[in-house]
């Protein structure tokens, strides 16, 4: 189990937490979505909000206490939620939080190469953070993008159809402070078939109708 799934040591835990005015407004909007007496249901979006607000992209214990107070629930109930869902980080992570999927479909399509490239390029192991605090690398289970396997998630973006080369290119760009284009890295759109649409071309406007033999093929 990764150290990100255990509370950060005391030295790293901030001593205070409060939502910024903008986030507080957002939080109130979220809470208002739930019927009277069911405000506790807002615990998950609020934890996410807290994680996004916190430097290091994590949820400090004090933020959980803050949310517990806000929703009038025992703190332990918030702890239970935050420790159950792996998308809440319980300890700080790097600016670029890399989650490489290594579940079977991705693995069959070469996720081991992606992991190796990350390790080599960043000089860190699984679960580690680079010394400059720019990258944290972890392995995760299926992120639901098997069509575009192998893939990795960096912060909120999916990078799909990876190879060792494209992985390196993404990491290089991130190191330079650029934001590489998210999505499939081999030019296909979303999770369309490789080589472009194969069926129903007449209806989607992305390729020639079958009877129009003269029309050019849609771009890949």
């Amino acid at each position: 189990m990764s150290h990100l799934r255990r509370p950060a040591p005391k030295e790293l835990q901030p001593t205070s937490f409060a939502f910024t005015p903008e986030n507080l407004e957002r939080a109130n909007k979220i809470i208002a979505k739930y019927p009277e007496g069911r405000q506790q249901s807002a615990v998950m979006p609020l934890l996410d909000l807290a994680q996004r607000q916190t430097e290091g992209n994590w949820v400090p214990t004090i933020a959980m206490d803050y949310i517990a107070d806000m929703l009038e629930m025992p703190a332990i109930r918030v702890y239970e939620v935050a420790t159950f869902y792996t998308m809440y980080n319980l300890a700080p992570v790097g600016k670029n939080f890399i989650q490489v999927c290594t579940t079977t479909p991705c693995w069959l399509r070469g996720s081991a190469d992606v992991v190796d490239t990350c390790k080599k390029e960043l000089g860190i192991g699984i679960g580690d953070t680079t010394e400059d605090g720019q990258f944290t690398l972890i392995e995760v289970e299926c992120l639901g993008a098997c069509v575009n396997a192998p893939m990795m998630q960096i912060n909120d973006d999916y990078y799909e159809d990876l190879t060792a080369e494209s992985t390196k290119a993404i990491l290089d760009a991130l190191k330079k402070g650029e934001k590489p284009k998210a999505g499939p890295q081999i030019g296909r759109k979303g999770c369309e078939p490789l080589g472009g649409p194969k069926v129903l071309k007449a209806f989607c406007g992305c390729g020639a109708a079958p009877q129009d033999a003269d029309a050019s093929e849609g771009d890949a």
């Binding site: 214990t61 025992p74 703190a75 332990i76 239970e80 420790t83």
Partner: peptide
């Protein structure tokens, strides 16, 4: 502890094989 004693100290934290019963802190 939640229902009878009314002190929310105990919980089931983490998940799956790592589940632990007790206070988080």
């Amino acid at each position: 502890s939640e229902e009878v004693a009314g002190v929310g100290t105990m919980g089931a934290v983490y998940r799956g094989e790592d589940t632990e019963v007790g206070p988080y802190i």
